[in-house]
Design a protein around this nucleic acid. Structure first.
Length: 553
RNA sequence: AGCGAGGUAGGGUAGUCUGGAGUGCCCGCCGGGCUCAUAACCCGGAGAUCAAUGGUUCAAAUCCAUUCCUCGCUACCA
């Protein structure tokens, strides 16, 4: 039987600012944990992610800084890529949307959509600044709000009354780029994806695919959009930064950022391996599993499948669309649009990446928004990760080292305990199958709980004292420690997707050098006495709490 | 406003699809144990009208209806 092949993706972070921890926990972290699990299971899988580089905000920022958008986007791309690396993320390829491979893919898919009649035109009024000689997106037009008279209304929304606006409604509009008032409104055309024409096929697809572990939110929301009726969605914009649209009448347009960002999943795979990418994207039976935050829902459940269905070029469709909810916080601020608050960069200055990975996985908003606070973080890090897991491993290894002469060279787990461990392992794998990673992590905690209970019940430190000249006690001690060391070894292996550095550190004590596999659980275990023993984790102290406190609201 | 998702001990969550004793987990609280370990660990206990109201049912946290509260989406943001 051919081995199942899997593509894991995370929503592409926008290369505008450093992602905050809410962004991280909402897509890249779950995707990375899930991918690591697949690696442990020995699956044929790749993990694709990268920078979403085009679009208005980056173009505007570049204008403001007086540099080329590409330079800006590439700079941020390298920074973000480096940060994910520091957080232990192991992409098969972390690419970017502004690449030749993606450009080629975008044009190919566009041509197919066009050839098959899925591209229509839309018309709208758009502000044009005669001074800057460019079109102005709504938010670049400011003036007086027609409803409340507020002076700082932007073309998309009035901050004073909160109403959504059209830039043409603004009274006395001026351009925020040059400050001038020489603005006129011109009728512009855009190319659009004919979603109404593809709606039926998308609906059929959602109904057949959503059984594959889609979140409730994703299914209900998508079907509700379909019930309302999909509208054509623009795929072009009057901007300079992006892939130019090589069509008559669209000389000053580029493809809209969402269009090439979604196609970016394919483009990035192609950038990774120009000859093998089709073995992933165009082979039936390949499972595409996509992670994203709920803000990205309809792009992935509706627009993206519609694009692939419409192009009809043999592309696979998403198997599982896994939509995470939000990490929210009343106490700590993190905002991407404003670029303030606790982001991935300053998080690392507070604690090592494993602490964040573990704690964020424990608080992961899988089924509902989850509340993030200093107290919640301290609780997970200090009580669960450190006291339960770290301390368990440490105390077992300490006892073992103190009475090394009483132990057999090979770790043997007692039968009854082995059954219990297998039960926990079954839960762990089962939860990963269902993509319930928070629950899977809980199985690791359960294993440590089991170990802590066993160590109390058996009190090996007592048996060790009684073992002098007593072969029965010696055997008892040796059996107990075999089981305890076995549990500690399992903890090191199973914690790896969540906290890879710590998992490896624990595993080193058991002579394991490379990244673990599930099959390693049943391999002969030994203890490497040569490895220096020190606590795996430490608690968050006042210093770390204060550092976090600096990001309080 | 419309559309989605939530509201379960003091706090945080799972359970809801497929109804069957309030069943589970983490913290906190109370009592006990242990001294191998990082002031850690183990055992036991108290604590919940499962948001509210009405309905279906032998039986409702779970199904239906209505109401209230929270979050998200409804952008020429991505």
């Amino acid at each position: 039987m051919a081995e199942e092949r899997i593509i894991v993706t995370s929503a592409l972070p926008y290369a505008y600012s450093v992602p905050h921890i809410g962004n991280f926990v909402g897509s890249v972290l779950p995707a990375d944990i899930y991918f690591k699990h697949l690696m442990m299971e020995g699956k044929d899988a790749i993990f694709i992610c990268g920078s979403d580089q085009h679009g208005t905000p980056i173009e505007l920022m570049a204008i403001k800084k007086g540099i080329e958008p590409e330079a800006l986007a590439d700079g941020m791309h390298h920074k973000i890529k480096g940060l994910f690396g520091k957080f232990g993320c192991t992409f098969t390829h972390y690419g970017k949307t502004h690449s030749e491979a993606n450009r080629a893919t975008v044009y190919e898919i566009f041509r197919e959509l066009q050839r098959k009649g899925h591209i229509t035109e839309t018309e709208s009024m758009l502000a044009y600044c005669n001074t800057d000689r460019r079109f102005l997106v709504d938010r670049l037009v400011e003036g007086t709000c027609p409803y409340c008279g507020g002076k700082k209304a932007r073309g998309d929304q009035c901050d004073d009354c909160g109403r959504l606006l059209e830039s043409s409604q603004i009274i006395e509009p001026h351009c925020t780029l040059c400050g001038g008032t020489d603005i006129e409104f011109r009728k512009v055309k855009n190319l659009a994806l004919d979603l109404p024409g593809l709606q039926q096929k998308v609906e059929d697809y959602i109904k057949s695919a959503s059984g594959n572990g889609w979140s409730k939110n994703a299914v209900h929301k998508s079907l509700s959009y379909i019930e309302e009726g999909l509208k054509a969605r623009d795929i072009t914009r009057r901007l300079k930064w992006g892939f130019p649209v090589a069509e008559e009448g669209y000389g000053d347009s580029v493809f809209y950022v969402w269009f090439d960002a979604l196609i970016g999943y394919i483009g990035i795979t192609r950038e990774w391996d120009g000859s093998r990418w089709e073995e992933y994207w165009k082979k039936s039976g390949v499972k595409l599993i996509q992670f994203m935050g709920k803000d990205n829902l309809e792009f992935h459940t509706l627009v993206w499948p519609a694009t692939l269905i419409g192009a009809d070029s043999g592309f696979i469709l998403p198997h599982t669309i896994y939509v995470l909810e939000y990490l929210t916080s009343r106490s700590i601020k993190f905002s991407k649009s404003r670029g303030v608050g606790l982001n991935m960069e300053n998080a690392l200055e507070i604690m090592p990446s494993d602490y964040w990975r573990f704690a964020l996985a424990h608080l992961m908003p899988e089924t509902a928004d989850s509340e993030f606070s200093v107290e919640a973080l301290v609780e997970v890090v200090n009580n669960i990760m450190n006291d339960k897991i770290g301390n368990f491993v440490h105390r077992v290894l300490t006892i073992a080292r103190a009475h090394r002469e009483l132990l057999q060279s090979e770790i043997t787990i007692e039968e009854r305990e082995m059954e219990e461990m297998k039960r926990i392992l079954h839960g762990y794998r089962d939860n990963f199958d269902k993509i319930r990673m928070r629950e899977a992590l809980h199985s690791v905690v359960e294993l440590a709980d089991m170990g802590n209970a066993l160590i109390s019940a058996r009190a090996p430190w007592v048996t060790a004292k009684e073992a002098a000249g007593n072969s029965k006690k010696e055997e008892e001690f040796s059996k107990t420690m075999g089981t305890l060391l076995g549990i500690a070894r399992w903890v090191g292996i199973l914690i790896w997707p969540f906290a890879p550095d710590s998992g490896r550190e624990i595993s080193r004590h058991f002579g394991m050098a490379s990244d673990p596999k599930i099959s390693d659980l049943y391999e002969k275990g030994v203890v490497d006495w040569g490895v220096e023993l020190k606590p795996v984790f430490s608690k968050m102290a006042d210093k770390e709490r204060e550092a976090l406190g600096a990001f309080s609201r």
